[in-house]
Every structure is written in structure tokens, then in C-alpha cells.
């Protein structure tokens, strides 16, 4: 159960930290767009390193945890920090059902997010990272649905 909550917290933190790391990159491309569209000869963008600190910190924590746990069992690197409990037939069945529910969440969530993206022109100056927030809503919803389902394994 502890592993489940750790993995859930890490998954949510990773999504949030990834979103934060995108903020300076959006600023960078906005500056680049101004340079191209307004035919400027030069432009300057200040990149705050602080936005990358959370993702770097999580990267270190996850790398340590991944290497530590890989000795005990073979964990797939690409799906880290997600977990797929499969110790016995019941766990495999609940994990499969959770994966199915997460897919349904994607099926429902993706069109809603596409609809929300239509409002981007309203936020373009106020919230330039709006498309990133909307795009990250999809894995956020999937992770929440997946973990709510697989927690049944430990009840």
C-alpha cells in the first residue's frame, strides 16, 4: 500500500513538475515567434532555472528509487513511476480492469480537452501555458482513475 501511495504521489508530482518545466520553454518560443513575426533583429528571453528544479529533483529521486528497486524486480524504465501489480491472478485482473478504466478516461477526457483548447485565444496573453495545462490534464485524469482502481488490490 505504501508503494502504491508513493507511486501515485510521484506520478502526480512528475506531471506537475513537467508542466512547470514547460513554462520557460513556452516563453522561449513566444520570444522566437515575436522575432519571426515582427521581423526583429534580436530578442532576449530570461530563462529562470527555478522552473526546472522540481523536475530535476524528481528525476534524481526517481532514478535512485528505480535503480534501488530494479535489484529486487525488473521494473520497466519507461513507465516509471507507474506500477502494474501482477503478483497473482487477482492483481493481474484488477490491474487489467484499471488499465481499461484509464483508457476509457482517455477516450472521454481527450475530446473534452480538445474542446477546452478552443478557448486558448481567450487566454493567449494571460496564460500562455494554457495548452500545456490542458494537455497534462489527460495523464492527470488517467493516473487518478488508474490508482483509484488498483487500490482495490490492497483493500
Amino acid at each position: 500500500m505504501k508503494r502504491l501511495w508513493f507511486s501515485f504521489a510521484m506520478s502526480l508530482s512528475t506531471i506537475c513538475a513537467f508542466g512547470m518545466a514547460m513554462i520557460p520553454l513556452v516563453e522561449l518560443t513566444r520570444g522566437l515567434a515575436l522575432l519571426i513575426n515582427e521581423n526583429r533583429s534580436a530578442y532576449s528571453v530570461t530563462l529562470h532555472f527555478a522552473w526546472f528544479v522540481p523536475i530535476l529533483f524528481l528525476g534524481i529521486v526517481e532514478a535512485i528509487d528505480h535503480l534501488w528497486n530494479r535489484r529486487k524486480k525488473h521494473l520497466a524504465y519507461w513507465i516509471y513511476p507507474l506500477i502494474t501489480p501482477a503478483k497473482d491472478e487477482r492483481e493481474r485482473s484488477i490491474t487489467a480492469s484499471a488499465a481499461h478504466a484509464a483508457f476509457i478516461a482517455l477516450w472521454v477526457g481527450a475530446p473534452i480537452c480538445a474542446g477546452l483548447l478552443c478557448f486558448y485565444p481567450l487566454f493567449i496573453h494571460v496564460l500562455p501555458v494554457y495548452p500545456i495545462l490542458i494537455a497534462l490534464l489527460i495523464p492527470l485524469v488517467q493516473v487518478i482513475v488508474y490508482y483509484l482502481k488498483i487500490r482495490k488490490i490492497y483493500l
Binding site: K87, E89, R90, E91, L155
Partner: peptide
């Protein structure tokens, strides 16, 4: 039988129907 404690508990409570093999 090669399953977790939680699986046995679920079978006893009737929350999980085991496979024929189990």
C-alpha cells in the same frame, strides 16, 4: 497456492471468484 494474503481474504469474503486453477 501462490497468491497474496489479500487474494485469499477476497475469496473468503466472496469478493473475488478464483480461477479454476486456483
Amino acid at each position: 497456492v501462490g497468491v497474496t494474503r489479500q487474494t485469499i481474504a477476497s475469496i473468503e469474503k466472496g469478493n473475488y471468484v478464483p480461477s479454476l486453477l486456483l
